[in-house]
Simulated scan of single mutants.
Amino acid sequence: MEQFSFNQFQDQVDEVLIRHKSILDILSKLQESSAKVNRAVAKSVTHCGCIQIHSQKQGIPEDISYSELKNYMSNHVEGYLCDICKEKIEEEISTTIFYITALCNSFNINIDDMLENYASQVKALGKYGLL
């Protein structure tokens, strides 16, 4: 099997995106696809019940260092996605990535370069870069 690359995906998106080529269409479809990700997660909780969300204030001891903070943070999700919910959420996230890629194409931004630059920033700044 051939190695997947974002450059190939970016070229595919450029080839197939015809109807929603306008930047306004891309932005509105991106927002719509993001909303569908939110809905799919909500349905996993409220309709399927394979996961639960128990949201509360993060319990952070006062006497820890910033580097220890990760050990005390929660994503508030309990349980695991069933195969059906996982497939639906993956589908919706994939659509969102499609429209992010289309947005990159509109502005002549190479997605591989963009992600490589961002990864370098994250590596250089580490956990302190995302405050």
Rank of each mutant, 00 (worst) to 15 (best):
N7G: 12
N7V: 04
Q8E: 12
Q8I: 05
Q10L: 02
D11T: 15
D11L: 12
V13Q: 08
D14G: 15
E15F: 13
E15V: 15
L17R: 12
L17E: 13
S22D: 07
S22R: 00
I23P: 04
I23K: 00
L24I: 06
D25C: 10
I26W: 07
L27H: 06
L27D: 12
L27I: 13
K29I: 08
L30Q: 08
E32A: 12
E32M: 14
N38W: 09
R39Q: 15
A40Q: 07
V41T: 07
A42L: 14
A42R: 15
K43A: 03
S44T: 10
S44Q: 08
V45T: 00
T46M: 13
H47D: 14
H47N: 11
C48W: 01
I51M: 02
Q52C: 08
Q52H: 05
I53D: 03
I53A: 05
H54T: 05
H54M: 08
S55A: 08
S55N: 09
K57C: 05
Q58P: 00
G59S: 15
G59C: 11
I60F: 07
I60R: 04
P61H: 00
P61A: 00
E62F: 09
S65W: 03
S65A: 00
S65R: 06
S65L: 06
S67D: 07
E68F: 03
L69G: 03
N71E: 14
Y72S: 05
Y72I: 04
M73K: 09
N75P: 07
V77G: 09
V77R: 01
G79P: 05
G79M: 02
G79W: 02
Y80Q: 15
Y80P: 06
L81T: 02
D83N: 13
I84A: 14
C85W: 06
C85H: 08
K86M: 10
K88A: 11
I89V: 01
E90K: 12
E91Y: 06
T96A: 11
F98I: 06
Y99S: 11
T101I: 07
A102S: 06
C104E: 02
N105K: 01
S106N: 10
S106I: 03
F107Q: 01
F107C: 02
N108C: 09
N110G: 10
N110F: 06
N110H: 04
I111C: 03
D112G: 00
D113G: 04
D113P: 00
M114C: 06
L115T: 05
E116M: 02
E116A: 07
N117M: 08
N117S: 10
Y118A: 01
A119E: 14
A119T: 14
A119M: 13
S120H: 06
Q121G: 10
V122I: 04
V122F: 01
K123F: 02
